[in-house]
Design a binder for these strands. Structure first.
Length: 240
DNA sequence: TGGTGATCATAC
DNA sequence: GTATGATCACCA
């Protein structure tokens, strides 16, 4: 069943774009090199997409564009973008000064069914095992069409980083487990933070209260702080 | 100006 | 509603 779904997904994407998924890391990185320096409009033209005037009503457009151009599988499965390769694709908006403009969304915070959940099994650990970061020019004074794609690079957290992420995750999840999700705000966590992840502030999902009963609450997501992604970028640039 | 809370599109 | 992809927008 899952195989069927996977195949249909790949096939649909291929028929729409004629871009097959990369079969090796080398093939993927060769595609990444080939698009470095291109503008978003040039990239969009490759697959006959129209560049929107801005991202206001298309916040995920750049991410979806890069996914498609690089042959990532489409769809909303909880799988890495490049399923064969176990690689997650993340675009990262870069300001004129070279720093990340926005935090990076990782995954939804489990607000129930988290009993016995450990770091190694968490969505954060799974998503961040191997990431293809692609910097994208994001200054608001550059029209979206003219913004250029940077040099993408593969990244895996080193042991120190992994420990920091694990500590953050465990600390944050402890509040969740104790039914104290509503007392957490975005200031908690060094590398990871928890923030709302919903269409609006009225959306509710099921969580757990302090007394252990089910309680409706705002859906949250894990995000990487810009200070952390800046660190990743500067380590790549300095060749570490 | 940057960090936090709020929000947008879309598939299923 | 839940998942994917994220950025917007306010205010200290």
């Amino acid at each position: 069943m899952r195989l069927f779904y996977f195949d249909r997904k790949i096939l649909t994407n291929f028929l729409l774009t004629m871009i097959p998924p990369p079969l090796s890391e080398q093939e993927l990185m060769s595609r990444v090199e080939n698009i470095a320096g291109l503008t978003l409009a040039q990239l969009a033209n490759q697959i006959s997409w129209t560049t929107p005037p801005n991202l206001l009503h298309n916040k995920g457009w750049i991410g979806q564009l890069l996914e498609t151009v690089l042959g990532a599988s489409a769809g909303s499965l909880s799988e890495p973008d490049f399923q064969y390769l176990g690689i997650e694709l993340k675009t990262i908006p870069i300001k004129a000064n070279g720093n990340a403009a926005e935090t990076t969304y990782v995954c939804v915070v489990p607000l129930e069914k988290h009993l016995g959940l450990t770091w190694d099994k968490s969505c954060v650990a799974k998503k961040l095992r191997r990431v293809l970061w692609i910097p994208i020019e994001s200054s608001s004074d550059i029209p979206l069409s003219d913004r250029r794609v940077g040099t993408g690079f593969l990244w895996s957290p080193d042991i120190h980083t992994l420990t920091k992420l694990k500590n953050d995750w465990e600390e944050l999840m402890e509040y969740v487990a104790l039914g104290q999700i509503d007392s957490i705000d975005a200031s908690y966590g060094d590398y990871l933070q928890i923030r709302p992840k919903a269409a609006n502030a009225k959306i509710r999902t099921t969580g757990v209260s302090r007394s252990g009963k089910y309680q409706e609450t705002l859906p949250r997501g894990f995000y990487l702080r810009t200070s952390f992604t800046n660190k990743i970028i500067s380590e790549f640039q300095s060749g570490n």
